[in-house]
């Protein structure tokens, strides 16, 4: 059951921020696809709820010369239907294409998916790989943080009690990057990840110039696979090397066993998925497919 709570709703960011400053114990609700369930199961307790779903100024996908900017209240379905996301944020676009069900996508927002801070949040590994930043705003100021620095643990982030995540900023990268996103679940769709992997690769003349890999569901927060990255950086890309490098991922992850999968299975699947994700990026090169 959902305990009795006070409910507040505002139509502008300013009003919402002012309310939050005076009521720092409020829980913020946008799409509600996570929060309502958590309230019901008492994973989260709240006395006051601040509904920001009508703050329409935070609902957009904007292409600028060097950035793609996503308003935090943009729904997953809107991202799925966005040509800008498809071109400039390909791994994110692939993640939202295999994200829950249509009804949930219509309601769930990207800001909510990030702030809920689930280790299994499918939008996060792609955002890490895209080197996205998050704009956190309170009544006085705005600050920007890297996505990968935002999470502290399951359900925990560095966001202050008076702050709202307002925007996701994705830098446009040069066109030599190739990206991939792969997710493994216990069935073929509508499923929480056992492991998810996003990868970005920048190759020049078959040499790996730069690389970023991030995984979901294999640690208390989404994580970078820095060991794999280091193993591969500045080296010639061969399938043998990628096979070896994928094994390094075990140094970067700390999976647990739960009702979805055992830790051992998650470890083995992380290796497989990292290799597949990197091979997909390489394949995109050989086929001349551009990511952005």
């Amino acid at each position: 059951m959902i305990p009795r709570i006070e409910y507040y709703r505002f139509g502008t960011l300013n009003e919402a921020l002012r309310f939050l400053r005076n009521n720092p114990d409020s829980k913020i609700i946008a799409g509600g696809t996570d929060l309502i369930i958590q309230l019901r199961s008492k994973k989260v307790e709240a006395r006051k709820i601040l509904d920001i779903s009508r703050v329409s100024e935070l609902r957009y996908v904007r292409e600028e010369s060097e950035y793609v900017k996503i308003g935090a209240l943009t729904t997953i379905e809107e991202l799925k239907n966005s040509g800008v996301i498809k071109v400039y944020a390909q791994p994110l676009w692939r993640a939202v294409n295999n994200f829950a069900v249509w009804q949930v996508r219509n309601t769930a927002t990207i800001g909510g998916n990030i702030c809920n801070a689930s280790p299994a949040a499918d939008t996060v590994p792609p955002l890490i790989v895209l080197e996205a930043k998050l704009k956190l705003q309170n009544i006085e100021r705005v600050r920007e943080v890297k996505v990968e620095e935002f999470f502290k643990g399951p359900g925990e982030t560095i966001i202050e009690k008076d702050e709202i995540l307002t925007e996701v900023v994705i830098p446009k990268k040069d066109s030599s990057w190739r990206y991939s996103f792969i997710k493994l679940g216990k069935r073929h769709s509508h499923i929480l990840s056992i492991v998810s992997v996003a990868a970005g690769l920048k190759i020049d003349d078959n040499k790996i110039e730069d690389i970023i890999i991030a995984l979901g569901s294999v640690a208390p927060t989404p994580v970078r696979a820095k060991s794999v990255e280091e193993y591969l950086r500045k080296r010639q890309a061969t399938s043998k090397l990628i096979e070896e490098a994928s094994g390094e991922v075990v140094k970067d992850i700390k999976p647990i066993s739960d009702v979805r999968a055992s830790a051992e299975y998650r470890i083995e699947m992380s290796k497989v998925l990292v290799r597949r994700a990197l091979n997909e990026c390489l394949k995109a090169y050989s086929h001349g497919i551009k990511s952005g």
Binding site: K186, R187, H188, I191, L192
Partner: peptide, 27 residues
């Protein structure tokens, strides 16, 4: 292939469709 009631000391750990999986159209 997928439907599994997970129990711990007789308590069902997955009394929901998030973790008790039935096939979707994609399966």
């Amino acid at each position: 292939l997928m439907e599994e009631v997970k129990l711990e000391d007789g308590r069902i750990l997955n009394p929901n469709f998030t973790d008790y999986l039935i096939p979707t159209i994609a399966d």
